[in-house]
Design a protein around this nucleic acid. Structure first.
Length: 397
DNA sequence: CGTTTTTGACCAGCGC
DNA sequence: GCGCTGGTCAAAAACG
């Protein structure tokens, strides 16, 4: 008798579960159809804006291909390079710049900024070779932008042929007590080398979030100050990133944006407004937590071989300006570092900064320093980081 | 036992 | 062509 009742209960419970599953299924279907509808609506809206923009700017879109390519560029990705897929597109963009004044160029930068995070153009059909090829093209595009405009004949096929296909790099220098910085991504070590001029071994890692991800990073301690860890990122993630990895990715992406927005001869003042707008474009999402991203003055130079931008999060007592720029990626990074380093490491050293400034400039790299207060105790360290964390998501005035 | 790290070998690019 | 250097590969070892 009891067993029959139990069976009935079990049956009822199962029926309930099936019913709930069906309900859930229906709900998900409705959500999906709504999302598809919204997506189509957004797509149409986007097309409309594009058309409007093009007509306003008198840009002649000669074929649907141009639209398609442009759309690809304007899709968002966390990339160290551009999303352009062909040299032809580079030329079109350069022509676009040429035809438009600075205001319109600003618009372009906003679109460039939208490269961050939403590049969905990679499909499962992409072969590794295609991805590699695309990466090379991306990096080449970066290089095209790094060449001084004065020296560039934008339409010169020969010139474009001469541009070396070297990858752009973003280097992060930070005080770190562990072997590698916690940037939120998954990495696998594939090599280690003693590089010339530094007795500390250089470790080579590749991203393992996706088996086809071409992103590499190098980690090496500074020979002069063993507490400083230099992490150099190269390549473009071809997969969605974990939330915890977006800070570093957006930082490197922003740095790469700076890299490509500058030439060896330009000064910070000339291009920073554009970069600032660019970064706003990246971070002004509708999310309540949307951070405001200010990038202070700086200037960039790149080497001819591997264009490298170095973000130096190590300490510097000669802090200039304690003004109120907020640098979300920086602050999030600080929190990441903090979790790795621990508050008691390197007491007495100044903390990470919120205000970058140039400390050195040569043909190879530009060092951008961020500095703020001095860490006097564990408590103060914690307070500062808590503050930084807050600053990361609020506009600071 | 599967995954990650280590480490020597190998390769490509570059300067001489 | 040769040597140096940076970067990658892959087999073996270590690890969980």
């Amino acid at each position: 008798m009891d067993s029959t009742k139990k069976d009935e209960d079990k049956l009822n419970s199962t029926k309930c579960e099936i019913y709930e599953a069906k309900e859930e299924n229906e709900r998900l279907k409705r959500m999906l159809s709504k999302m598809v509808k919204d997506y189509k609506s957004l797509q149409m809206h986007f097309q409309g804006i594009l058309t409007q923009k093009n007509s306003k700017n008198n840009i002649i879109a000669t074929s649907n291909n141009i639209h398609e390519e442009k759309e690809q560029v304007e899709l968002v990705s966390l990339s160290l390079g551009r999303s352009s897929t062909s040299r032809e597109l580079i030329k079109k963009e350069l022509l676009y710049d040429d035809q438009n004044n600075s205001n319109k160029k600003h618009n372009k930068l906003l679109f460039d900024g939208l490269e961050l995070g939403l590049d969905c153009k990679f499909t499962q059909e992409n072969s590794f070779e295609e991805l590699k090829k695309e990466n090379i093209n991306n990096e080449r595009s970066v290089l095209v932008q790094n060449y001084p405009p004065s020296k560039m004949d934008y339409c010169d096929e020969e010139f474009l042929q001469q541009i070396p296909q070297k990858k752009a790099r973003v280097s992060i220098r930070a005080v770190c007590g562990t072997t590698t910085m916690n940037d939120g991504c998954q990495w696998r070590k594939y090599g280690q080398k003693i590089a010339k001029g530094n007795p500390c071994p250089r470790a080579y890692y590749r991203c393992t979030v996706s088996p086809l991800c071409p992103v590499r990073k190098q980690v090496q301690r500074c020979s002069k100050d063993m507490s400083i860890l230099t992490t150099t990122y190269e390549g473009t993630h071809n997969h969605p990133l974990p939330f915890s990895a977006t800070a570093m990715a957006s930082t490197t992406s922003a740095a790469a944006s700076m890299l490509r927005c500058t030439s060896t001869s330009s000064t910070s003042q000339q291009f920073l407004p554009n970069i600032d707008q660019n970064l706003h474009g990246k971070f002004n999402f509708t999310n309540n937590n949307a951070p405001t991203f200010h990038l202070p003055k700086t200037s960039i130079s790149t080497s001819q071989s591997h264009p490298t931008i170095t973000l130096d999060f190590t300490t510097n007592s000669s802090s200039t300006n304690s003004s109120s720029s907020s640098f979300n990626s920086y602050s999030t990074l600080c929190n990441n570092f903090k979790s790795e380093i621990g508050p008691s490491s390197y007491l007495g050293r100044p903390c990470y900064s919120n205000q970058p400034f140039i400390t050195s400039k040569n043909n190879q790299n530009t060092i951008i320093e961020y500095s703020s207060g001095v860490r006097n105790s564990d408590d103060e360290w914690i307070q500062k980081n808590a503050k930084v964390s807050h600053l990361g998501f609020d506009h600071v005035t």
